[in-house]
Design a protein around this nucleic acid. Sequence first.
DNA 1: GAATATTGCTTCGTATACGATTTCGTACTC
DNA 2: GAGTACGAAATCGTATACGAAGCAATATTC
Lengths: 226, 226
Amino acid sequence: MTETLMATGSKSEQAYAAVKARIVDGTYSPGYRLVLAAIAKDLGVSVVPVREAIRRLEAEGLVTFERNVGATVSGIDPTEYLYTMQTLSIVEGAATALSAPLIGPADIARARAVNEDMRECLQHFDPVRFTALNQDFHSILFERCPNPHILDLVHRGWNRLASLRSSTFRFVPGRAHESVDEHEALLRLIEAGAGADTIERAARRHRAATLDAYLAQSNAGSLNAR
Amino acid sequence: MTETLMATGSKSEQAYAAVKARIVDGTYSPGYRLVLAAIAKDLGVSVVPVREAIRRLEAEGLVTFERNVGATVSGIDPTEYLYTMQTLSIVEGAATALSAPLIGPADIARARAVNEDMRECLQHFDPVRFTALNQDFHSILFERCPNPHILDLVHRGWNRLASLRSSTFRFVPGRAHESVDEHEALLRLIEAGAGADTIERAARRHRAATLDAYLAQSNAGSLNAR
DNA sequence: GAATATTGCTTCGTATACGATTTCGTACTC
DNA sequence: GAGTACGAAATCGTATACGAAGCAATATTC
């Protein structure tokens, strides 16, 4: 690949972006063994920048690292999925509540448009597209969160979720309908200037409900104790 | 294999632990310029492991890094403090609520003992000791949280706070009394088997109140909208 | 005298090289 | 035939080396 663009900056950054992209798009599927030398050769750099990239990905939880053994793409161990979703329900709920007062009519309109696309998408259901739109929708709602730390946590959560192949809704297609309706309800709450607590709770339950749907289908009990 | 001698593991680990310790204990105060070569020489290793260590610390937010310039210890910019405390209020509240059902009488007793130490500490007020005990107390309450991701976020939050020189309560000594009382109230809630929502709310407000006390003293408004 | 160009120093960024550790295959013994 | 011990290949961990980028102080020109 000679598509080198200066814009990316350092080799570490390039390596980070490249590996992350391949994890997210599924080129490196969960369990894939990330060999430093191989990646370095593939990217046309030495192993040192690749090491740094891997470490960063480790910090984000996208890969797991074992000393003297190497890195592998983090699995979608159902337990991991559960933990990630639960964590996301909490931080995303908070982020949405914090950003609600800063959401203007234009944002609402955009979000509603996306949600309409989702509703339309229900006809000939495409889980991948639906999941992508779902992320767009929620991004509009939490992106104005004034606390950058919380926002960062939300982004990390979504990233981990994205490293699941294709789509969340592939596993729980039945949730799609309810999800769209809950989105609209959430929008109305924000429009009406509902309290932070109300919005947080609604956002959290929305995500927790998806998790519960997944769990119910897999087998076990529920974490959604609220 | 005798791991006793090599207990520290890799040089990267050592460097990470060493630098982190120095940040936390104040040897490297905020704004301190972290020069790779100097640290490497000081630790008797080369710069490569130090680089990795710095990167990890960057991911945790303890240091800020600028390309081709270097790393500095993250400042206690009041805004940063605010963001960190707010984030911690959310994740710690959640962690405490999740761990509450798993807290046994023994834990309660330990926590209460620590809180009594804190009460006693109020006589000849020592902010450093008080802050340390405060962390011990809360650790007991959230450490049983079954979701490792959330627990990790809580630990990171506390770490960032610890990188503030000495003590939170140095800045808001007036909060110490109320804090001890709120601790006892929290313990009673847990003992009584209160709902997750109630406990989460109490834990969050407890922290948010400390943040508000800090803000009120500094000057500005309040984030504690609940 | 002030603004700008130049030079040199400091520090980071990455490549290459070598030592350390793990893993897997093979041979040997019981 | 099964289990263990040994060894080779693969891969990671770290050191050293050199090139690149930023920064500061000084020289130079208008």
